[in-house]
């Protein structure tokens, strides 16, 4: 089997497991500064799926692609630590405020610049927006087939790839031709850990923007080892149409946001005594809730 060229889509997300009341700005956009950021969990599964193919077919080349603010360069470094060959960062203030339509357009412009690929893999969904829409929208814009909710790659053949999908009510095995796009389900194998050697090698990997505040030593290191400079693409670099990116390119708008407040109602407070429990059961039967 010939080696494949794989692009992994990975997003840096706020850690929604620890959300405070100031997580959203009044205009409904995310107040990222207030939240710790993590590698989107499903995307780590996608990364593992790609690296696993690379294990199976030596010579396979894995490129990690992320779109986000400067800080998202962490995603590319994390990819390097775990074994990807290339990293690309799409970053520009003008991409901000994008919904899934504008996000997928932007990512696809980046993929088109990469141009040579057999397989695109992403997570099923990101834990902030929770939409699971970016994958299928990218596939449409690239005009390639999509295979969503992939749990395992069963076979990699010359002209097709066979995968098992995890559906909400069952499983399905499908064969898809190259190139295609897959979204990876959280039930697939967990991502391998960092490789110590790679951490040493890529610890100082930085984007252009990050290098702006770098000292002499770091700049010299980047001159000596060009592979440490993470390619960073702007609106112009990916030839994006300004009307299709950011807020302007986003049909969906957040009108309002409310935190979920549990509604306090009059509750009856009971003990575990026989009389309390029997009283409650009798009430429930009387009101036809049970019985």
């Amino acid at each position: 089997m010939r080696p494949l060229k794989i692009v992994v889509l990975a997003k840096q997300v706020p850690d929604t497991r620890h959300v405070g009341p100031d997580a959203m700005k009044p205009d409904g956009t995310v107040n990222r500064g207030k939240l710790a950021t993590v590698f989107n969990p499903d995307d780590l599964h996608a990364l593992e799926l790609a690296l696993n193919i690379k294990d199976r077919i030596p010579g396979t080349e894995v490129t990690i692609l992320t779109m986000g603010p400067q800080k998202a360069a962490d995603i590319v470094r994390e990819g390097y630590y775990r074994g990807v060959d290339n990293g690309i960062m799409i970053s520009d203030r003008r991409f901000g405020g994008a919904d899934t339509l504008a996000t997928s357009y932007t990512i696809v412009q980046g993929i088109k610049k990469i141009s040579d690929y057999d397989l695109i893999v992403g997570g099923r969904q990101a834990i902030d927006g929770d939409t699971a829409q970016v994958g299928p929208q990218c596939a449409d814009k690239l005009n390639i087939p999509q295979v969503t909710y992939v749990e395992e790659i069963l076979e990699i053949e010359e002209d097709k790839i066979i995968a098992r999908r995890r559906l909400s009510k069952g499983i399905e095995t499908v064969a898809a031709p190259y190139p295609c796009l897959m979204t990876v389900h959280g039930s697939s194998p967990k991502c391998r850990s960092r490789i110590a050697k790679n951490v040493m090698k890529y610890k100082y990997a930085r984007t252009k923007s990050e290098l702006r505040s770098a000292d002499e030593v770091l700049l010299n290191l980047h001159k000596k080892r060009p592979y440490l400079t993470i390619p960073e693409w702007s609106v112009e670099d990916i030839e994006a149409d300004a009307s299709k990116i950011g807020l302007a390119g986003s049909p969906t708008k957040v009108k309002s946001v409310s935190s979920i407040v549990l509604t306090a109602n009059e509750s009856k407070i009971l003990t575990d005594s026989d009389s309390d429990i029997e009283g409650m059961i009798k009430e429930l039967i009387e009101h036809h809730t049970i019985g």
């Binding site: 339509l101 699971a132 829409q133 994958g135 299928p136 929208q137 814009k141 999509q146 049909p251």
Partner: peptide, 18 residues
Amino acid sequence: RDLAPRLASKLNCGLTAD
């Protein structure tokens, strides 16, 4: 969730998830 986003992209329209 497989179909609607692909369609939204084709129609170039917004899609609210879930």
